[in-house]
Amino acid sequence: MGTTAVEHLLALTPERRPGIPETLNGTLRLDMYQDGWTQHWYLTVTDQHVEVGRSADDADLVLRAHRTVFDRLAAGQLRAPAAMLRNDMTVEGDMRLFVVFRRIFPGQAGAQHPREVARQLAADPASGRDGDR
Rank of each mutant, 00 (worst) to 15 (best):
T68F: 10
L28R: 09
Q39K: 12
A56S: 05
A59I: 04
D60I: 02
H66M: 09
V62F: 12
A59H: 07
Y33K: 13
V50P: 01
M32Y: 07
A59F: 07
A56R: 05
H49M: 00
R67Q: 15
V45N: 10
H40K: 04
T44H: 06
L61Q: 08
D57R: 15
V62S: 14
T68N: 08
H49G: 00
D58E: 10
Y33E: 13
S55Y: 08
T38G: 12
D35I: 03
G36P: 02
L43C: 01
V50M: 07
D31Q: 11
W41G: 02
L43D: 00
Q48W: 00
H66N: 13
E51N: 12
Q34H: 15
E51Q: 14
R54P: 01
L61Y: 05
D57P: 09
W37K: 15
E51S: 10
R29H: 09
D35Y: 11
A65H: 03
A59W: 08
V62M: 13
T68D: 13
L28G: 04
V50R: 08
V50I: 15
R67S: 10
D35G: 05
Q48Y: 00
R67G: 05
D57C: 13
G36F: 07
L63E: 03
H40F: 12
Y33H: 15
T38M: 10
T46D: 14
L28V: 13
R64C: 10
A65E: 02
D31H: 06
D35F: 10
R54Y: 13
S55Q: 06
D31T: 03
R64W: 05
D31L: 09
A56C: 00
W37Y: 15
L43H: 02
R64Y: 02
D35H: 14
D35E: 12
Q34C: 10
R54N: 05
S55A: 11
S55K: 08
G36A: 09
D58F: 06
Q48R: 07
V52P: 00
D60W: 07
W41S: 09
R67N: 12
Q39C: 08
W41K: 07
D57S: 15
V50C: 12
W41Y: 15
D47H: 04
R54E: 11
R64I: 07
T68Q: 11
V52Y: 00
L43F: 05
D60F: 06
M32E: 09
T38L: 11
Q48P: 01
L61F: 07
D57I: 11
Q48D: 00
R54I: 12
G36D: 06
V52F: 01
D58I: 04
D31Y: 01
R54L: 14
V52I: 07
W41L: 08
Q39F: 06
D31R: 12
R54D: 07
H49A: 00
L63T: 02
W37H: 14
D58C: 02
A59Q: 06
R29I: 06
L63K: 06
A56Q: 02
R67I: 14
T44E: 11
G53F: 08
L61V: 03
A65T: 03
L28M: 14
W41Q: 10
D58K: 06
D58R: 08
Q48N: 04
T44W: 05
D47N: 05
T44D: 00
D35Q: 11
D35C: 03
D57H: 15
D58Y: 08
G36T: 07
